[in-house]
Computed example of a mutant assay.
Amino acid sequence: MTSVSANEGRGPLYRLYINRLRRRISPDGVPHHVAMMIDGNRRWARQLGYETAAHGHRAGAAKMHEFLEWCDAVGVEVVSLYLLSTDNLTKRDSRELSDLIEIIADLADELSRDRDFRVQHVGRADLLPPELARSLAEAQERTRDHTGLHVNLAVGYGGRSEIVDAVRSIIAQHDRDGGSLEELAASLTPEQIGEHLYTGGQADPDLVIRTSGEQRLSDFLLWQSAHSEFYFVEALGPDLREVDFLRAIRDFGSRHRRYGS
């Protein structure tokens, strides 16, 4: 699955093709929840000769803002953006991480003031620098009564850690209620674990998109994506175009979803 070449431009023929794709997308075939793994920001910056990865991360953040507008336009109701993993917090160069933290904080603030988006932080706030945790909390509080597109910002996020935290939360609640371990073991269900995830109360993603040609989950929504459809785009994150997105939605609508096989 490849993106339209950047050389095709954004002229009349491109817009004509975009409009034709839109017409071919049935409202019944639009996913309720889309998860996006934007990848390739650093490669994009390196290929264009920038001295730091920050240029790629800024371009990627701007693209995610645009991506949310595309999702909103076709009727997607929930979008989860994978912006910073728990691994990133320990394995990224300190200068790059500092730039990335500032970029994510700015993005959260911008999204909380755009349209009627409802912003939610998904991840471990206690692992984040205080200024970033504060920006995410303020964006979430500012939009708590919004009724538009629900935007999950996965920052300081790890799928395995999320599952562990969910199980710990269940055990703690069961202990407060005075239950025994035997009772907990007998009553534990997948639905119960799902309720205690960072995304508790939300529907699981129907479609997971990843850019830059990489085809792996990278610890993103491991539990929630058990039955998700996947779509991989060759374009680097900042080069993602609306036509790539619409092709992903069209492809999703044409699939016959199976569960358990």
Rank of each mutant, 00 (worst) to 15 (best):
250 R>P: 02
233 V>L: 12
188 L>I: 15
147 T>E: 14
161 S>F: 11
102 E>T: 14
209 I>Y: 06
88 N>A: 08
118 R>M: 10
125 A>L: 15
192 Q>V: 07
86 T>F: 01
234 E>Q: 11
119 V>G: 07
56 G>E: 10
128 L>E: 09
158 G>K: 13
35 A>W: 04
160 R>N: 09
2 T>K: 06
56 G>H: 08
144 R>P: 04
1 M>I: 11
76 V>Y: 06
161 S>K: 10
127 L>D: 04
164 V>P: 06
17 Y>C: 11
158 G>C: 10
55 H>F: 11
232 F>M: 05
172 A>S: 13
107 L>G: 04
236 L>T: 03
143 T>F: 00
247 R>N: 15
236 L>K: 02
86 T>D: 02
145 D>N: 13
74 V>G: 07
202 Q>M: 15
56 G>M: 10
106 D>A: 15
28 D>Y: 00
147 T>G: 09
99 D>E: 13
170 I>V: 15
242 E>V: 10
185 A>P: 01
188 L>F: 04
100 L>C: 06
140 Q>P: 02
28 D>V: 03
221 L>N: 01
174 H>D: 11
85 S>E: 03
89 L>D: 00
26 S>T: 03
235 A>T: 02
91 K>A: 14
138 E>R: 15
118 R>L: 05
3 S>E: 14
127 L>T: 03
4 V>W: 03
134 R>I: 12
72 D>Q: 15
103 I>A: 11
26 S>C: 00
26 S>K: 05
186 A>L: 13
192 Q>A: 15
116 D>N: 14
254 S>K: 13
212 S>W: 02
75 G>D: 08
78 V>D: 05
147 T>H: 11
39 D>M: 04
44 W>N: 05
56 G>V: 03
99 D>C: 04
66 E>P: 06
38 I>P: 15
228 S>D: 01
95 R>Y: 10
76 V>P: 08
112 S>R: 05
201 G>S: 07
228 S>R: 09
220 F>H: 08
63 K>P: 05
48 L>N: 07
194 G>L: 02
177 D>Y: 07
179 G>R: 13
61 A>E: 00
250 R>D: 15
169 S>I: 00
181 L>V: 15
235 A>Y: 00
92 R>A: 07
119 V>K: 05
2 T>I: 06
40 G>F: 00
213 G>I: 00
203 A>M: 14
120 Q>T: 10
73 A>R: 13
162 E>A: 09
42 R>G: 14
208 V>E: 01
30 V>R: 01
178 G>P: 14
121 H>V: 09
66 E>F: 07
252 F>S: 02
10 R>F: 14
